[in-house]
């Protein structure tokens, strides 16, 4: 059972710099040439920023959906501040039993505070038994 009290809670703010070397490795892993552009899914490499009290199961977690919104393109050299927020936690009865949906939104801003991106992920946890 995932604690619904976590709805609305935020993580600490994390800071990252978009390094050319990391973008190049990411592009090569996808199978595209690196030409200085940042692939649209690169944001997924921004780790950390755990929401306190959100205990996600380690096993059986499914990625149900992902949405990215860019207010401007991300460029190599950008310094971005980001944090996660739990937007919603809800249950649905499915073919495979009870499922809990956890919707988290990550928001990224420039050093001057301008909104650069949001990334919304929906994770699905299946309840055992």
């Amino acid at each position: 059972m995932i604690n619904k009290d976590a709805i609305g809670r935020e993580s600490e703010v994390m800071t990252t710099r978009v390094e050319a070397e990391n973008v190049r490795r990411f592009a090569e892993a996808i199978g595209i040439p690196y030409v200085g552009e940042v692939p649209p899914t690169f944001i997924i490499t921004f780790r950390g920023g755990t929401v306190p009290g959100l205990d996600l199961p380690e096993k059986g977690l499914i990625h149900g959906g992902q949405k990215f919104t860019y207010y401007r393109p991300i460029k190599v050299g950008d310094v971005l501040n980001y944090k996660r927020r739990v937007k919603n936690i809800y249950e649905r009865a499915g073919k495979l039993g009870k499922m809990t949906f956890v919707v988290q939104e990550m928001e990224g801003r420039s050093a001057t505070g301008d909104l650069v991106f949001t990334a919304t992920s929906t994770l699905i946890a299946r309840e055992e038994g």
Binding site: I30, E37, P40, Q66
Partner: peptide, 29 residues
């Protein structure tokens, strides 16, 4: 799942070839 989403993203960026920029990108797995 994110590697498959990245393939769809690669289809888009290779088609665009720098002409436009992706402002929203959304998938269900």
């Amino acid at each position: 799942g994110m590697l498959t989403m990245a393939q769809v993203g690669a289809m888009l960026t290779q088609w665009l070839n720098g002409e436009g920029s992706i402002s929203q990108f959304e998938v269900r797995f």
